[in-house]
Each structure stands twice: as C-alpha cells, then as structure tokens.
Computed example of a mutant assay.
Amino acid sequence: MAVLAKGRVFAAATLAALMMATGAQAAGQCGKDGSGFAAWTEAYKADAQARGIDTRPMQGVKYDTGVIKIDRSQHKAFKGTVEQFLARRAPASYVSKAKGYMKSQAGLLRKIEAQFGVQPEVLLAIWGMETGFGANSGNKSVFGPLATLAYDCRRSEFFTNELDSALEIAQKGYISAAQMRGAGFGELGQTQFLPSKYLQFAVDFDGDGRRDLIHSRADVLASTANFLRGHGWSAGGGYRPGEANYGVWNDWNRATIYQKALAEFAHRIAN
C-alpha cells in the first residue's frame, strides 16, 4: 500500500503543531541520520509506556539504513510509462494467474462482492500487484523499519502513528509480534496493509476468530474490499480514469502511475 502522506500548507502545519503535541514530539527529537536514533527510541518507549503501550516488540531495534535509502528513492520506482510499470508489476503471466483465481475462487469472490460491493478483478489486481498473490509479502520484522521512519524527520508523525498501531496489534494479540513481518516499510500481509489500516479495516471473513492478513486468503481479500468500501467505493461502479471509483485508487496509493496501472490490470483480468 505504502500510502504517502499529503503535503499541507505551512500555516495549517504550524497551527496544528501549536495545538497538538504528537507522539513523535512527545517522544523526542527526530533526526536525519542514525546518530540520535538510540536516544529517540528510549524516549519513545518511555512515552509509549506512559500511554499504556507495550513496547517489548521493539527490543533490539536498530536504525535501518536500507528503509531510509528506499524511502528517499521511491520516486524512481514510479518512473516510465504505464505499460513499463505493468511489465514490471503485473506482466501477462499475472493476468493469466488472476484469471485462474477468478475461476478457482469464484465462490469466495462472489461472497465478498455481495457484502462489500467490490468487483473480483479489482481485488485480484491489488493482490497481484502488491505481493504477486501472496508470494512476496516479505519476511522482515515491521518494528525496526517503523521505528526508523518514525524517528526520521521526513514523515515522523505519520510513521509514529503506524508504530503505535503496530504495537497495539501485537499487544492485543491480533497478530503475534513474531509474525508481524513484511516487505520493509511496516506493511502487513498479502495486500500490504499499514498497521493503522489493519486496525481500521481488517475483517475476519473466514470466521476463525482472527483477522489474519498473512495466511487467510478470505481475510486478505475481504479486508481489501472493506478498505476500498471504507474509502468511498461505489458498488459495481467503474474504476478506470474518469469513472466513478477511479478516485478511490488514490487512497490506496498516491502515485498516479500506480493508480493507472491498477485500473488497467483489473480491466485486463476482467476481459
């Protein structure tokens, strides 16, 4: 998902800073390199614990230079044409695989569409583009990258909220801390939910008592549909440029080329 926080005008940002102390501000000074990370981490833990958050999953976290490097170069991943992007992220083999899932998972997809109003090809496009239908969800603990990005000044407030949310997920036992592993930006599961979005939109669709976006295909696809519905998806509406649901893609990913590619990928699956 990796949704990028929108910019705000200077006056609004200043007013917000004056009116409210964020978790990041309460924790300590953000930084632009790793030199202050250890001190920030200890300050964050003290603040979080005072707010009733169990920080034990953060034990041993280190400044992640890899995630900072990727964060600084995200724009490179979204260069080129839509067709070039599709060739990398949704090649013809993915379209064929998705068409196979349209048949093999038809019953599940119909139930999800009946409840949430999201077309099967849309869910399959997201699932395929995000993790290759669950094959590439990642195996890196979310806590180090989230702590690093929360400390980093570029989007400290945004990722402090995600770190808080990740710790809440572990503390409440929704997913064990050991299982909270992803591709490197703190995303969870087969369609890469940020922790705060897990808390808002994850659903237990298979009825086993857990909202499992790591192992349960039913939960993964239904939760993705719930996210889209929660952001204004119109049941059965079009999703290509100029159609009713095209704007909802922006709430999944802010990159224009990603939005166009998802819409085209879904269209190819359906046709």
Rank of each mutant, 00 (worst) to 15 (best):
A12G: 10
I112G: 01
E168W: 08
T55W: 01
T41E: 13
I169Y: 01
T131N: 04
F201N: 01
M102A: 11
T22A: 14
A225L: 04
K172W: 00
R72E: 13
K103N: 15
A147R: 03
V118G: 02
T131Q: 06
M1A: 09
E42K: 12
E113F: 01
G128P: 02
V9A: 13
D206I: 02
R56D: 07
E130Y: 05
Y239Q: 01
C30G: 14
G128T: 08
P195K: 04
S156E: 05
N226D: 07
A202S: 02
Y258N: 05
A170T: 07
A38L: 12
G144Q: 12
K140R: 14
R211H: 00
T160M: 13
Q259S: 08
D251L: 10
H231G: 10
N271E: 13
A50L: 10
S216F: 00
F10P: 06
Q179I: 14
L108H: 09
M180C: 08
D33R: 06
S96L: 14
A170C: 11
Q115H: 12
G132D: 13
D204S: 10
A218W: 03
Q59F: 08
F201I: 01
R110G: 03
A92D: 13
R110T: 02
A46L: 11
R51K: 13
F193L: 05
Q49H: 13
